[in-house]
Simulated assay, not measured.
Amino acid sequence: MTAPRNYAARLSQQLINQGGLPFLMPTIETCLLENFTELDAALQHINTFDWIAFTSRNGIDAFFQRIEDLGLNLLLLTICRFCAIGLDAERLAALGIKVDLLPKEPSPAGIIAELAKIPDIAKKSVLVPVPEFVDLPEPDVIPSFIAGLEKLGMKVTRVPTYRTRCLDKNIYEVELNLIRQGNIDVIAFSSTAEIAGFLQMVNSKRDYEHCVIGCFGPYTAANAQKLGLKVSIVAQDYSSFAGFADAIALWAAPFGSIANGGA
């Protein structure tokens, strides 16, 4: 599993529930911004936005942490409407925030499809909290999301909210050797950034040629293929990690159980 640790814990439990043996090897980590200028400017004028569209739980956590650090009143958010994806809506609810738009398809494209149904959405202003990528290429998901919102006629403000960076491969000597030796059955990617980070840690395709590649949904799978990976497992239900674990278990069923190997 290459997901950041805050996500990996949830995916790990789902795999264990299916009888799997998860190995954690986060290829990326999220951390605080070094420069909060853009985020702070947006937060100081938060009541000027009609919508706030979150694409990740990390974005939600970093956004509200900064609000707390600045001592801003959450009542300033009452004028805004909120978009979230999948179980991220539960995180907003826990923070006391009502989710106004939860798309049937748990993806940024799903948000665009639902917003497109709102008659007066053109000219509405939307704030999009996004990660700042360090030593990693920005996945096309975010630029595509911004372009889709702009195509609806919305006034889009994207604002860096947290940093995503690649971890040092030297901390994973054991895990990378397990992969090279063919002792890992499945490499489970939950985002494009994880794939980019992983590819920086290996020397060539030979390092992972014995592994089956699994992806958390069609968008991650499409980007994995663009990056040269052969994808064999794609979660059809990508609203939660339970769907990803189900997809891996379904792949493993002919072999008896995913408990026979690692993930």
Rank of each mutant, 00 (worst) to 15 (best):
2 T>D: 04
4 P>Q: 13
6 N>A: 10
7 Y>N: 07
7 Y>K: 09
9 A>T: 15
10 R>D: 14
15 L>V: 13
15 L>M: 13
17 N>H: 13
19 G>Y: 06
19 G>N: 02
23 F>N: 11
23 F>Q: 13
26 P>S: 06
32 L>V: 13
32 L>E: 15
37 T>P: 07
39 L>I: 00
39 L>P: 00
41 A>F: 01
41 A>R: 12
43 L>F: 10
44 Q>H: 12
46 I>P: 01
47 N>E: 15
47 N>I: 00
54 F>Q: 07
55 T>G: 02
61 D>T: 11
64 F>S: 10
66 R>Q: 10
67 I>S: 01
73 N>T: 14
82 F>P: 05
83 C>T: 11
85 I>V: 09
85 I>R: 06
92 L>W: 09
95 L>S: 02
95 L>Y: 13
96 G>Q: 08
96 G>M: 03
96 G>V: 09
102 L>E: 04
109 A>E: 15
110 G>S: 08
112 I>P: 10
116 A>R: 13
117 K>Q: 15
122 A>Y: 11
123 K>I: 04
126 V>P: 08
127 L>P: 08
128 V>Q: 09
129 P>N: 11
136 L>G: 02
142 I>M: 12
143 P>K: 02
143 P>M: 03
144 S>Q: 10
144 S>D: 15
146 I>N: 03
152 L>T: 08
154 M>H: 08
157 T>Q: 12
157 T>C: 04
161 T>K: 03
161 T>D: 03
164 T>N: 09
165 R>E: 04
168 D>T: 02
168 D>A: 11
171 I>K: 03
175 E>A: 05
178 L>W: 14
179 I>M: 14
183 N>M: 13
184 I>G: 01
184 I>M: 09
185 D>C: 05
188 A>R: 06
188 A>M: 08
189 F>P: 05
197 G>I: 07
198 F>P: 00
198 F>E: 00
198 F>G: 00
199 L>R: 02
202 V>S: 14
203 N>L: 06
204 S>D: 12
205 K>G: 05
206 R>N: 14
207 D>W: 02
207 D>T: 01
208 Y>T: 04
209 E>P: 01
211 C>I: 06
213 I>H: 08
214 G>E: 09
216 F>E: 00
220 T>Y: 07
223 N>K: 15
223 N>P: 00
225 Q>W: 02
225 Q>R: 15
227 L>P: 04
232 S>I: 04
234 V>W: 07
234 V>Q: 05
236 Q>R: 10
238 Y>M: 06
245 A>Y: 09
246 D>K: 11
256 G>S: 13
257 S>M: 03
259 A>V: 12
261 G>T: 12
263 A>G: 07
263 A>W: 08
